[in-house]
């Protein structure tokens, strides 16, 4: 059977972008009608960052093939336990993303994992946001609603035993709400969020499979400044420049009227010893505390061209490059944040 994608024992986002997308593309090229079957029977573990990415990928496939995607899971595996406890299964059923063999689920006596580690998703069917015409106010309103939700859902996890200081927790909660707001505003699709903590730190991952930055910018008639400025780099870095244009737009907004947005979010994460990764299409841009924490290059500048060039300089094909170009991309925006526990 040609349309089975077999997943490894451990699924990380890197593995997903590098291998799984390639396979899906191959399957699609051969046969546009038959959806792939995702075979996770060998899989024992999905990294927390990869969980929403898999869901949003499933959502995308559902939209592409217009039917739920079959997901095979080993009957004895701890993955099954995770899928049930984290609400992966219930969400995928509700949104008709994946179909999983009922028998396997019914026969498994699952033991409850950490109660707080549940996936949540943002419903885009809001009945009354449209009455707010002003886009800035609309965004604020969505953000206000989501920040309440974030607090209720994630507040507890973040206040967990590993003692994150309060200001970081607040910043994290508002970050999550910001990103989800962005995905509603820009992408018009479901976005999935997963927050998981352990004694070493917290991983936050938010993924959606919507139209993404470029189309929404065009729709709102905003310029992709960085794309224009660095046109000579060619199509290879196009997605990278789109990402930087969005960050630039956010940076300018921040300069103009101090609004908190993606850019401030990224700087906050980096200041708190975290790593901020944003993936769009086939390109992932990584800001880590190692390189960006004390960076003062943008002080006094009107845009973030210095960032753009700095990252380009450090770009290479090894795993430490701040710009990663994968062979295959798919629509949507995916953001990963990893914050280490503060040293005590």
């Amino acid at each position: 059977m040609d349309n089975i994608i077999i997943f490894d024992e451990k699924i990380s986002t890197y593995y997903f972008y590098n291998n799984i997308l390639r396979k899906s593309f191959e399957i699609y090229s051969l046969d546009r009608e038959t959806p792939p079957i995702l075979d996770m029977r060998k899989t024992q573990y999905i990294t927390p960052s990869a969980v929403p990415v898999i869901l949003s990928f499933g959502d995308y496939l559902r939209k592409l093939y217009k039917q739920p995607i079959e997901l095979l899971i080993g009957s004895e595996s701890s993955l099954l336990n995770f899928i049930i406890c984290s609400q992966f299964k219930s969400i995928s059923e509700k949104l008709q993303i994946f179909k999983i063999d009922k028998e396997i689920i019914e026969s498994w006596n699952y033991k409850e994992l950490r109660d707080l580690h549940k996936i949540s998703y943002t419903n885009i069917h809001y009945t009354d946001v449209d009455r707010i015409k002003n886009p800035v106010k609309k965004r604020d309103y969505i953000y206000d609603c989501l920040v309440d939700k974030s607090k209720a859902v994630y507040g507890k996890i973040l206040q967990d035993t590993h003692q994150l200081p309060i200001n970081i927790i607040d910043a994290t909660i508002s970050s999550i709400a910001e990103i989800e707001t962005n995905s509603i505003i820009y992408s018009n699709s479901y976005s999935f969020t997963y927050v998981a903590s352990d004694k070493y730190g917290t991983n936050i991952s938010i993924a959606d499979s919507g139209v993404g930055f470029e189309r929404s910018f065009i729709k709102e008639k905003r310029k992709l400044n960085m794309v224009e400025k660095y046109q000579k780099l060619g199509p290879k870095f196009h997605n990278y420049l789109v990402i930087m244009s969005v960050l630039n737009y956010s940076y300018e907004k921040h300069l103009k009227d101090k609004r908190a947005d993606l850019w401030t979010l990224m700087t906050n994460v980096v200041k708190c010893n975290g790593i901020f990764k944003i993936q769009y299409g086939n390109t992932q841009v990584i800001f880590s505390q190692n390189s960006c924490k004390n960076c003062k290059r943008n002080e006094g500048k009107k845009d973030i061209s210095s960032c753009v060039s700095c990252l380009l300089e450090r770009q290479s094909e090894d795993s430490y490059s701040p710009i990663k170009l994968f062979g295959v991309g798919f629509q949507g925006v995916r953001i990963e944040i990893a914050v280490d526990k503060e040293e005590d």
Binding site: Y14, N18, L21, R22, S24, F25, Y28, Y60, K63, L64, I124, H125, N188, S189, Y190, G210, V211, P235, K236, N239, G281, N282, E317, D318, S319, Y320, S321, K324, L325, F326, G327, V328, G329, F330, Q331
Partner: peptide, 23 residues
């Protein structure tokens, strides 16, 4: 040989789908 990302000669993209999530 550090885990390299594939040298990208030609970027493939899975096709774009419009959201059919109109309630």
């Amino acid at each position: 040989t550090k885990q390299k990302t594939e040298p990208v000669s030609q970027v493939e993209e899975l096709p774009k789908v419009d959201d059919d999530n109109e309630q």
